[in-house]
Design a protein around this nucleic acid. Structure first.
Lengths: 152, 152
DNA sequence: GCGATATAGTAACAAATGAAACTAATTGAG
DNA sequence: CTCAATTAGTTTCATTTGTTACTATATCGC
């Protein structure tokens, strides 16, 4: 009665999601690199540091959902470029607090309009309701994927 | 009147999309690797070859949206494992036609139910209407990102 | 036909990424 | 206290992935 299970790659969510995300990511990455010399992990750190005061790298790991090695490397690159400053953490000598420097904030102010413009172009085909729905759906997907402990 | 442009990372589509896609991809990749010894590009080739008869690698590049190098490597791996067979292309000595072997098809038949099950678990939090909507939205995003020629 | 150009596929190289090992500092059990 | 176990962050190493260069064949203009 149920016949052989059907599967078409272009109706397979993980495939579709991956293709769309990679397309969008590549566009963004290329633009950031060309315009500001930033890679995605660096841009993410800057964005979080601009939103919130000085934080530890550990906090950045949580807020950006990136690996601690990726965060470490991005932080080193940004400190080297003078975009981020490190100050000792009062209560823990292992960690330091990261914050945007004046240069870092100035760069952030320049990146934001471009980032929003790029986002708008990506979302050009969608109504505001569609956009809102998309965020909700992505959030649910994330939650499910995170909760669903056993990977098989 | 418009104040400084606002941006919060967790409301930024490229970020959100990337996080969701990577979560889903990691789950799938881990399961395929553990259960069938397949990596994602290999699985994609198998899926397309199962859907359609013998095709060239060039066709696989288009159907899977993967780089030709990635396709080449996956094809070599699958041929080596005996899951895919290559036959000369009648009209073009540069290329050969790829098709699933009997072993390849047998593996495919085993992978499909698992793939569908994993997809169902990812989509657990979504109604059928939500799922349909998600596909439509992803498709529009893809189209926009592809059309929008100038990357800046 | 014949040479310039394009295409199918592979190989060689380089950049990005994450897992595991490592260092240094902290915490907690006794 | 003190020592085992944990945590912050970095380094090292292996894997993955794409860009560029290359080989072989095919196509087009003439």
């Amino acid at each position: 009665m149920d016949g052989p299970a059907e599967l078409r790659l272009d109706r397979f969510l993980p495939y579709r999601l991956s293709v769309a995300a990679n397309l969008v990511s590549d566009r963004i990455a290329t633009a950031y690199q060309a315009l500001f010399g930033l890679r995605i992990p660096e841009w993410r750190l800057i964005a979080v540091l601009a939103e919130s005061g000085p934080v530890t790298q550990q906090a950045l790991v949580q807020r950006t959902r990136m690996d601690k090695v990726t965060v470490s490397r991005a932080a080193i690159a940004l400190v080297t470029r003078g975009l981020v400053e490190r100050t000792p953490h009062a209560h823990d000598a292992r960690s330091r607090l990261l914050a945007l420097s004046a240069d870092g904030r100035a760069l952030y102010e320049k990146v934001v309009p471009k980032a929003l413009e790029l986002e708008q172009r990506m979302l050009a085909g969608l109504s505001p309701d569609d956009v809102a729905k998309l965020f909700v759906l992505l959030e649910r997907l994330e939650t499910t994927a995170l909760e669903d402990g056993d990977p098989m």
